[in-house]
Design a protein around this nucleic acid. Structure first.
Length: 743
DNA sequence: CGTAGTTTTGTTTTT
DNA sequence: CAAAACTACG
């Protein structure tokens, strides 16, 4: 036997060699579970003659899947290609693309994201005459979503509905599902649910996959919900070679339907299950681990385990209380600079974690002014940006004419004079005749009462038809370019000439390079394939630790990652644990937050910094919250407390720019989220000199001559307000607009 | 029909 | 505070 397994500890080896029958691996944070999984796959193939295509390994993120595949590749050479290593969602899509026609859907279905779902729900509410003020689309969506996670179809939901509210939601659910089907679309929940339905209604299909996947592995099992559980157990029930890996202490997706029961009662579900605990931690120092253990020890109903390490105690946990969120951010930035200058650390050694995405703003500002390269993971992701969704909606419309949501999104983008009243007339006509929205557009001349707008609709229909014809012969890139040309989408943005528009143009450029990349890396690239890949992408997937920058992300996004230095910020009661969890009165809710805290602490390898702000502006109100209760759950002798530091930002050291007239930091191209000092180290902001001043006349390539009204300094560039007689007042970035002074 | 200007509303966390 | 939703006017 190959000696690659001798690197593993006793428990890890047990897990690798136990290949038959159900196996639960309780893997504490940093205990090398990915290592176990990859070695287990290698072992199956090398020593047990299992064929690569008989193995299914499921992860939650594409990043995890990619990493696992790469590591298996390294162990085995190149056998890993045929192993199904993918997320729940992409596994299901793959199955559905082959078989969904057997349960009455078209195989070229579209995948709806949250935004699309909300639009659809809005339509349902309208159609059912339900007051959207009383039934907010987000809460209705949450209800429907959780029903689907529990595998309740509309009729099940109606049966169990109690009270007016639930009965109303049930009606919406029923209509929503009908509309999805009509639009030939599936939402995220459906991907799982429909696959399970397929398996249940077509035993022959289930049998096919049961025979194929002799060995199944599931990562992050503690985060599975009911449908995912059903999916896995259906597939595994025959061979029973199911290996699940998880840590109940790291279950942090209850809000998304994750059912901690799945892991706690695995042994009940699979009576002859073998349980192995991995408790040796290879990641963190003793002090960090002890802190984590103490905190999580306050939760009830856990599987008993205690992480240990043979590493040294390491440094104490730094705890600092700052005056405001600005002071906190400054402290973080300065500490990073200090560590880099004094101790020769790299930017990529640092991660800043927070509870909510909103907290990233202030940190970002300080990083810019300290010239620290950083990347924010999450928040409004690239694929959720308006301009990207617009372009994708065009592609979706071209690809699938029954996708009403996509058609409606772009019918008047860019503006073609098709307004609300026209759209509702078409909608009414479509409903009355039971046809798709796009088909109704085609028959616009038959719709009464449309005089002026009929022609506009017609030209829109022709546009789409032309693109459809082009799709036949064009490759993907040309098609995207054709969409851009024929819609003048970019041209319209250029005319706008604002900073915001510039950012949007850059984002579209970024999308085009993603299309190119897809086209290059895929054997048989198709429009459908591209749209699918894009639909299932998560922000964290784009993160790689090769580039040298500090990363900022929510604790949720950080799960599964590790960093030498971790800053856990915003440790205030009401923020973390969140106000919601405290006020709900359910201890369960605080426990989930506590697990989140445990996840955060255990990301740190060498040193953990914890900080809180005495006052913080939230939603426009300045609040002052006590320290997070989790801090008092940490052993006092491991904390290096500094609560005295109350120095607020000294006003004169702050880089002055008011938010109002500096939109540079508000809307920026996705790419510049990664801000890197350019090859020539960017001189500090102030030493970048402009050769014109307020009152001067300048020349701009597009707008011609204008007068400089105002120059605002911010981070790495100046914002210049210029009045162009031809185009009006524009806000421009000095570097991008390349203004030339005129004497 | 489009727009600018005004009011209101909201935050966990995301595959 | 900032984005979204609404209102009033050209």
């Amino acid at each position: 036997m190959s000696n690659k397994y001798s690197m593993l500890n006793l428990e890890q080896r047990k897990a690798v060699f136990h290949t038959k029958g159900p196996l639960l691996i309780l893997a504490g944070a940093g205990s090398g579970k990915t290592r176990v999984l990859t070695h287990r796959i290698a072992f199956l193939i090398e020593e047990e003659q299992v064929k690569p295509w008989q193995i299914l390994a499921i992860t939650f993120t594409n990043k995890a899947a990619k990493e696992m595949r790469e590591r298996v590749d390294k162990l085995l050479g190149s056998f890993a290609e045929d192993i199904w290593v993918s997320t729940f969602h992409s596994t299901c899509v793959r199955i559905l693309r082959r078989h969904i026609d057997k349960i009455g859907y078209d195989r070229y279905f579209t995948i709806y994201d949250t935004d699309d779902q909300k639009r659809l729900i809005r339509e349902c509410l309208k159609q059912l005459n339900i007051d959207p003020k009383l039934y907010k689309e987000s809460s209705v969506l949450a209800a429907i979503s959780s029903a689907k996670d529990k595998m309740m179809i509309p009729s099940d939901y109606i049966k169990q509905a109690v009270g007016l509210r639930e009965e109303t939601v049930a009606k919406v659910y029923e209509l929503y599902q009908k509309k999805l089907m009509k639009n030939n679309a599936l939402d995220f929940n459906d991907l799982l649910f429909k696959t399970v339905e397929l398996f249940q209604s077509r035993p022959d299909v289930l049998e096919e996959y049961r025979d194929k996947f002799q060995y199944i592995m599931v990562d992050e099992y503690q985060d599975t919900n009911r449908v995912q559980y059903a999916f896995v157990s259906l597939l595994a029930s025959k061979h029973q070679n199911l290996c699940v890996v998880g840590d109940d202490d790291q279950s942090i997706y209850r809000f998304r339907g994750a059912d901690i029961r799945n892991i706690l009662e695995f042994e009940k579900d699979f009576p002859n299950a073998c349980v192995i605990k991995l408790e040796q931690n290879y990641r963190s120092t003793q002090n960090i681990l002890d802190t984590a253990n103490h905190v999580i020890g306050n939760n009830y109903g856990r599987k008993v385990k205690r992480l240990w390490t043979d590493k040294e105690k390491g440094e104490l946990i730094d705890f600092k209380s700052l005056q405001s969120e600005h002071a906190e951010a400054r402290y973080v930035a300065e500490e990073i600079v200090r560590q880099i200058e004094d101790n020769g650390r790299d930017y990529k050694d640092f991660a800043i974690l927070y509870r909510t995405n909103a907290q990233s703003r202030v940190l970002e500002e300080k990083f810019i002014s300290n010239n620290i390269p950083y990347k924010i993971i999450g928040g409004i992701s690239f694929y959720q940006r308006k301009e990207i969704k617009d372009v994708l909606a065009y592609l979706r419309t071209v690809n699938n004419s029954t996708d009403d949501i996509a058609v409606k999104r772009i019918i008047n983008v860019p503006k073609r004079g098709i307004g609300l009243s026209t759209i509702s007339r078409i909608e009414a006509y479509a409903d009355a005749n039971d046809i798709d929205f796009f088909d109704a557009c085609e028959k616009v001349s038959e719709i009464p009462g449309m005089t002026r707008s009929a022609n506009k609709v017609k030209s829109f229909v022709n546009l789409i038809k032309t693109l459809r014809v082009e799709m036949e012969t064009f490759d993907l890139i040309d098609l995207v370019n054709a969409v851009m040309d024929r819609t003048s989408y970019i041209k319209n943005l250029e005319i706008e000439g604002t900073l915001e528009a510039e950012g949007r143009i850059e984002n579209i450029g970024e999308l085009i390079s993603k299309v190119t990349e897809y086209q290059k890396n895929t054997e048989a690239p198709t429009l459908n394939g591209f749209l699918e890949e894009v639909a299932l992408i998560a922000d964290i997937d784009a993160y790689n630790d090769v580039s040298n920058y500090v990363v900022l992300m929510t604790i949720h996004s950080a799960k599964g990652l590790e960093f030498p230095f971790v800053f856990l910020t915003g440790m205030e009661d009401g923020l973390f644990p969140s106000y919601m969890s405290i006020s709900s009165g359910e201890e369960e809710d605080v426990e989930e937050e506590r697990r989140l805290c445990y996840v955060a602490i255990t990301r740190a390898m060498q040193k953990l910094y914890i900080s809180s702000a005495k006052t913080r502006m939230i939603r426009g109100l300045t609040q002052s919250n006590p320290f997070s209760r989790f801090i008092s759950e940490m052993p006092d002798d491991l904390l290096d407390r500094d609560e005295s530091m109350t120095n607020d930002e000294p006003e004169n050291t702050r880089v002055h720019y008011s938010r109002k007239n500096n939109s540079f930091f508000n809307v920026k191209p996705y790419q510049t989220n990664t801000y890197k000092p350019s090859a020539k180290p960017i001189p500090n902001p102030k030493s970048f000199v402009l050769d014109y001043d307020k009152g001067d006349l300048v020349m701009h390539a597009k707008f011609g001559i204008g007068e400089v009204l105002e120059i605002t300094s911010g981070g790495a560039d100046y914002q210049v307000k210029v009045n162009f007689p031809s185009a009006g007042v524009k806000k421009l970035l000095a570097k991008l607009s390349n203004l030339k002074k005129i004497d």
